[in-house]
């Protein structure tokens, strides 16, 4: 059975939960392709537009494959007060891509996030599920090296 069908088999609940289903699809495929919407809708017994509506609402859900590592760079107020904009500019320069984009080598996707609850170590960024603090222009290179592979 194809991976999508396998996931959907586990998601057929009453009542259906579209968000939880899309999260599981994304955990398996890395993203939720637009082309998968009808199959998801059919499996859950809802309309295509129900699924597409949820898919487009949440920042976490993506319709394009991400890079190997997703960097979620914090632009919350504490990080702004600690110079996050300078760090962000440095990281964009280093990666050669802007917020919302993926590097050419598909290694990193750069996104913004509003607060990781790590404000005592602002500015912060989360790479995958690792939360990092004091992400400063001068420490960026070392940090990204940890995720080179």
């Amino acid at each position: 059975m194809p991976p999508l069908a396998q996931v959907l088999e586990r998601c057929a609940t009453t009542p259906p939960n579209i968000l939880a289903t899309l999260q599981k699809v994304q955990a398996t495929l890395g993203y939720v392709p637009h082309t998968a919407v009808p199959e998801i809708a059919h499996a859950l017994g809802v309309t295509d537009s129900d699924v597409a509506g949820v898919l487009s609402f949440y920042h976490d859900l993506r319709t394009e494959p991400p890079g190997k590592h997703t960097i979620r760079f914090c632009l919350g107020e504490s990080c702004l007060a600690a110079g996050a904009e300078k760090s962000l500019a440095a990281i964009e320069k280093k990666l050669g891509c802007e917020l919302g984009e993926t590097t050419k080598d598909k290694r990193f996707t750069l996104e913004k996030v509003y607060c990781l609850g790590n404000c005592a170590l602002s500015p912060c960024a989360m790479i995958g599920e690792d939360v990092h603090g004091r992400v400063l222009p001068k420490t960026l290179a070392d940090l990204l090296k940890e995720y080179k592979k």
């Binding site: 009542p15 939960n17 968000l19 939880a20 976490d60 996030v113």
Partner: peptide, 25 residues
């Protein structure tokens, strides 16, 4: 345990409930 999907508005209690039901928040 239910996991959100990156929407600040879901901290508002009625949006949270919509989201918990799997809908747009």
């Amino acid at each position: 345990i239910f996991i959100g999907a990156g929407a600040y508005i879901c901290g508002e209690e009625t949006a949270l409930l919509e989201s918990l039901e799997g809908k747009r928040g």
